[in-house]
């Protein structure tokens, strides 16, 4: 059953508020449990009426109807609250490097009327975001299981589908670091993460780690200092800075075989 709300109520998408109400009443007169002739029929009516009411609830309020129309047809000029109907879904600031994303509402299937209505954008853009999410999750899984090289592929795929998520870039940088990939791209990616979300000290940390791993302490110091600008209490950064400064002038070969 992939009927949309209008089909469930039996009205055209251009129906007026009054017509929608009349349609609802019409269905209620037939299928409301109070009109059932037996308890068994009442239970069946309850379920049926449940779907009808859900459709009516989305259409009877002008704002919600506008949002629904936009999701369904991609039309409609009214944007009451364009950005996600559920801002509450965003997780609070989380000290962990990988904040648990909130339970999300993935790409809608047209099955029940209710699951459609909570979306704020329609069709393709949403499918991409979900693909991005899934690629990212797969990448994470691979990385945690010791396969950073493959993880890199998935992170790149995630970014292709959704290039606005700083964490995708950050994780890509880490995966690249662990699988010893292109240094230049690594830096590019880590910097992009920082650009998208400078407040997150973790992204600065990743950049600094890259520089450290690449034995570029001067740049690493810069990165740590930048981090401390955004997060002055960061113990790890402070510790690393203390150890790195002042940059010693050790010949290359000594660095290679000397104690780290």
């Amino acid at each position: 059953m992939s009927a949309n709300h209008y089909e469930i109520l039996g009205v055209s998408p251009e129906a007026s508020d009054d017509e929608i109400r009349k349609a609802y009443y019409h269905l209620a007169r037939e299928f409301h449990p109070d009109k059932a002739s037996s308890p068994e029929e009442a239970v069946a009516f309850d379920e049926r009426m449940g779907i009808v009411s859900a459709a009516y609830n989305e259409l009877k309020d002008r704002d919600r109807r506008a949002l629904y129309d936009k999701a369904l047809f991609g039309t409609g000029t009214r944007n009451p609250s364009e950005t996600q109907q559920e801002p509450a879904m965003k997780p609070p600031a989380n000290p962990e490097l990988a904040p648990p994303p909130p339970p999300s509402v993935p790409a809608k299937k047209t099955a029940t009327s209710a699951s459609i209505t909570q979306m704020s954008s329609a069709g393709n853009p949403d499918a991409k975001i979900t693909t991005a999410k899934r690629s990212f999750a797969k990448g994470m899984y691979l990385m945690l299981n010791g396969n950073p090289a493959k993880a890199v592929m998935f992170f790149e795929a995630a970014i292709q589908n959704n290039d606005k998520e700083p964490i995708y870039y950050a994780r890509l940088a880490q995966a690249m670091m662990r699988s010893h990939k292109s240094f230049v791209r690594m830096l590019e990616v880590a910097n992009k993460a920082i650009e998208l979300d400078p407040y997150k000290s973790d992204y600065h940390m990743i950049l600094a780690e890259i520089y450290e791993a690449a034995n570029m302490p001067a740049k690493a110091i810069d990165a740590y200092q930048e981090l401390l600008k955004w997060d002055p209490e960061n113990a790890h950064a402070l510790a690393r800075l203390a150890e790195l400064k002042p940059p010693e002038n050790i010949p290359f070969w000594k660095k290679l075989f000397g104690k780290g």
Partner: peptide, 21 residues
């Protein structure tokens, strides 16, 4: 996270998808 907003006509059925953290 609201599944059935106030002043929704009843009887009503609402389904939403969630995931793990």
């Amino acid at each position: 996270s609201v599944l059935i907003p106030r002043n929704s006509s009843i009887p009503v059925v609402c389904t939403r998808k969630f995931t793990t953290v």
